[in-house]
Design a protein around this nucleic acid. Structure first.
Lengths: 232, 232
DNA sequence: ATTACTAACTTACGAGTAG
DNA sequence: TCTACTCGTAAGTTAGTAA
């Protein structure tokens, strides 16, 4: 399960974001940072160590100030709070994120993974359907990679990893979606893989290629409904 | 100056918001709250005491669970973080907030206050202009009171109170704006007064009534440009 | 049931300082 | 300069308990 980050560490991460570490690496010394968090140099140093240990930021330490960048995991931590604040203070959810892509062929790996009972059980439980053993692969445009990144940073349903006999299967995240405004499904992304953003692997209770008469190259619309972390 | 709330207390406030205390009073026991903040009943109790002492929430304590509501000051504390997160993670500022109102006559009190050097000095310093000794009073529609409340919860420039001989002058907040897309100015609101939302008192370097040939009843547009707390 | 006190405990902090 | 160690102290938390 996601280990909750403590408030004082979250605040340091937030401070780093304010200093610009969310977009690009920033050069900052622990002394400088300590002013911004309102503490001592030693505290800043320790916070950076712990945050790095939790994978929320990466550092390139050198004399003359370290380079600090917030990782996608760190951004997710910040984004989660953003979504909650938006919901409660602005009274609206994050907007539906829509992608227009085209159907492509995959390597049929999806079928193998999905058919594992360890995943099927969790899909039933969290998505509420029996997944068809295969994925629909949707190629998206390069200019949409950023939006996909933002989507994946947001709230998701998480499937735990498990062992099946010899082999270990990793954890994954699912983002429920609607395909062509009619069929329910979910984008599935394996965790801990800085993956390729060009193709979305979508699971669904149906064999979508047949049900919707899809062929490679067909245009397809994938809509991700807003999901709050607290719904998860 | 605004006393910075500590991260662990901010987190408890945030948790209360998630439980719904931003909109309406919620009934919650310290035991229940302690689960949500991930601590003990005693900590929850203390946090509520401190937050109440800082004016960030109000309570009606009774056996069977207290009623808790976040105050406008508390919401401002949360909103400030929201604005920063939006800026950095979504790469955009809060939108410009626009009011369509009409010019009305005031009681000429504004002139008295503005002419005080204690305020003039701070206006020069923070707004960058010499204020005309008087205010333009703009009446807004009742359905816009909510938006005005939201505006005033957001970042502002703060004028400290001061003593001038005998009399003490209170602190005030200013929200820079643009009048009819051409003249710079600022909405000024006295602090610690749960004030009337119907009329905006606007200061400006110009005598706007003459410069723009305004008379009572004339329609006027007031646009508030986004302002981040870190700009303040 | 509640809230909140006091005292013991644990965590986080910061001064000093080394690498 | 930097980062990050040790270690004494301060702050925050929790257990026990009262009202």
């Amino acid at each position: 399960m996601t280990e909750r980050i403590k408030p004082h560490l979250w605040f340091t991460l937030y401070t780093l974001m304010k200093l610009g570490a969310s977009k690009t690496p920033i050069r900052i010394s622990t002394t400088r940072l300590s002013n911004d968090i309102g503490g001592s140099q030693q505290s800043a140093s320790r916070h950076l160590q712990v945050l790095e240990g939790n994978g929320l930021l990466v550092r390139a330490i050198s004399s003359g100030g370290s380079k600090v960048t917030i990782t996608p995991e760190g951004l997710a931590e910040l984004d989660q709070v953003l979504q909650e604040l938006k919901w409660h203070l602005e009274g609206k959810e994050a907007e539906t994120i829509i992608f227009e892509g085209e159907v492509v062929s995959g390597l049929f790996e999806g079928a193998y993974y999905i058919s594992k009972e360890g995943y099927q059980r969790q899909i039933r439980q969290k998505l509420g359907f029996e997944a068809f053993p295969g994925t629909l692969n949707v190629k998206i445009r390069e200019e949409d990679y950023g939006r996909r990144q933002k989507l994946e940073r947001g709230p998701s349903l998480r499937f735990e990893g498990f062992k099946d006999g010899e082999r270990a299967f990793g954890a994954a995240r699912a983002y429920p979606c609607l395909i062509n405004d009619e069929e329910a499904g979910a984008l599935v992304v394996a965790e801990r893989s800085s993956h390729d953003y060009s193709v979305m692997e979508i699971i669904s209770p149906q064999y979508l290629r047949r049900k919707m008469e899809l062929a490679d190259g067909d245009k397809i619309k994938v809509a991700f409904l807003p999901l709050r972390q607290s719904d998860v």
